[in-house]
C-alpha cells in the first residue's frame, strides 16, 4: 500500500444551537490512496469539504466536527496506524516528526507576541530535548539557509515579516523534522502571484530533497497544474475524479472537472471563459443522487436518484459519473 489510505471516510459537523440541530456532511464517503514521494493535489470549489478533509487527515478533529465512519491509515514503514484511533500522546509523537501541516491562512499561524526562534523552539522541544541553545540556533540557521531565508528572521516577530516571508517561515517550520507527509491547505491563496510562484518553487524543491509526500489542497487549478503529480477533484464532500495530473488536465471525464479545467486561462486562447452555472450545494441539505446533477449540463434520470460509484476507467484513472460508467459498461 501507499503511505496513506483513506477508507470510506465520513465526517460531519453536528451543531445544536438553541435547539436548531444541523448536520453538515462535509465529508461523505471518501476513499483514496496516496503513494510515497508524490505531490497529491486536491481541488474543488470553496466549501466542498477540502479543508475539513485536511483536518481529519492531520488528526485535528474537534467538536462540532465528528468522524462518523471510516479509517485514515498511515504507513510510516512500521505497519499501518489509524490516526483516528490513536491516543493523545501517540498522536503527539507522530505529529511534526511524521506528519506536519501548512495551514490555510498562514498569515496568522505564528504567535504574534513570540519571536520566530521561540516558536521554532516550542515546536522542536515538543519532540526532542534541546541540549544546547547554541546548537539549536545553528541548526535552525542552517535549515533556514537551505530554504534561502535570511537568518535574521529568527530574531524577528511575525509582524516584521511580509506575507510571503511568513509563509516561507511556516514552510521551514513544517519541514524541520523532514516529515514523511506534509499537508498543505491553500498555501498560496493569500499571496500575490509573484510571491506565489516563489513559495510553490520552495515546496517543490523541498519535496525533491526530503522525498516527502505532499498533500496539497487548493481551489486554484493553475497551482495544481504547476506542481501536482496526481490530482483528485472534490465536489460536495466526495471525490468525483482522480488521476495523474496530465490525465486530469487533458483527458478529464467528469463534467465538473471539465468545467474546472475550462476556467483555467491558457496562453493564446482567446475564447470566452464560461463559469459553472449555479452555486455549490448546501452540505446541510445536499441534492439527492449525484450531487453535481443540478448544475450538470448532461444530466440524466439516473443521476437524480442514484449515487454514481467511483470506478477505475484507465491507468489509475477513477471517475464517479454515470456518463462514463454507462459507456464503459455498454462497451463490455
Amino acid at each position: 500500500m501507499g503511505i496513506l489510505k483513506v477508507e470510506n471516510l465520513k465526517a460531519y459537523y453536528m451543531t445544536d444551537v438553541y435547539g436548531t440541530k444541523r448536520t453538515v456532511r462535509a465529508i461523505d464517503g471518501i476513499s483514496v490512496e496516496i503513494k510515497e514521494n508524490e505531490i497529491f493535489g486536491i481541488a474543488g470549489e470553496s466549501s466542498c469539504g477540502k479543508t475539513t478533509f485536511m483536518k481529519v487527515l492531520s488528526g485535528a478533529v474537534k467538536p462540532p466536527l465528528t468522524v462518523v465512519g471510516g479509517k485514515v491509515l498511515y504507513n510510516f514503514g512500521n505497519g499501518s496506524l489509524d490516526i483516528l484511533s490513536l491516543q493523545k500522546d501517540e498522536l503527539r509523537k507522530i505529529r511534526w516528526k511524521s506528519i506536519s501541516c501548512i495551514l490555510q491562512g498562514s498569515m496568522s499561524v505564528l504567535n504574534p507576541v513570540r519571536k520566530i526562534y521561540k516558536t521554532f523552539r516550542d515546536f522542536v522541544e515538543a519532540h526532542q530535548k534541546i541540549e544546547k541553545k547554541g546548537d539549536f540556533m545553528r541548526q535552525m540557521r542552517d535549515h533556514l539557509g537551505k530554504l534561502g531565508l535570511p537568518r535574521e528572521v529568527l530574531k524577528a516577530y511575525p509582524h516584521h515579516l511580509s506575507g510571503g516571508m511568513k509563509q516561507r517561515v511556516t514552510i521551514a517550520l513544517a519541514t524541520i523534522f523532514k516529515p514523511s507527509v506534509i499537508i498543505a491547505d491553500e498555501p498560496t491563496t493569500a499571496l500575490d502571484v509573484i510571491v506565489q510562484r516563489g513559495v510553490l518553487q520552495l515546496l517543490k524543491e523541498i519535496q525533491k530533497e526530503q522525498k516527502n509526500t505532499i498533500i496539497l489542497v487548493t481551489h486554484d487549478m493553475a497551482v495544481h497544474a504547476n506542481i501536482a503529480d496526481r490530482i483528485a477533484i472534490m465536489y460536495a464532500g466526495r471525490i468525483v475524479e482522480e488521476a495523474k495530473a496530465g490525465d486530469i488536465l487533458e483527458n478529464s471525464l467528469h463534467p465538473y472537472t471539465q468545467h474546472l479545467i475550462d476556467s483555467l486561462p491558457m496562453i493564446g486562447d482567446k475564447s470566452h471563459r464560461v463559469s459553472i452555472p449555479g452555486v455549490p450545494p448546501n452540505l446541510a441539505n445536499p441534492p439527492s443522487g449525484c450531487r453535481f446533477h443540478p448544475r450538470c449540463s448532461s444530466v440524466m434520470g439516473i443521476c437524480r436518484e442514484e449515487v454514481p460509484p467511483l470506478i477505475e476507467v484507465g491507468d489509475r484513472h477513477k471517475v464517479a459519473c454515470f456518463l462514463v460508467s454507462k459507456e464503459s459498461g455498454d462497451g463490455k
Binding site: W96, C101, L103, S108, P112, F123, E125, A126
Partner: peptide, 12 residues
C-alpha cells in the same frame, strides 16, 4: 490559527 497550529505541532 496560531493556537490550532501549535496543537497540530504537538506543542505541550
Amino acid at each position: 490559527d496560531y493556537v490550532v497550529y501549535a496543537e497540530m505541532g504537538g506543542v505541550s
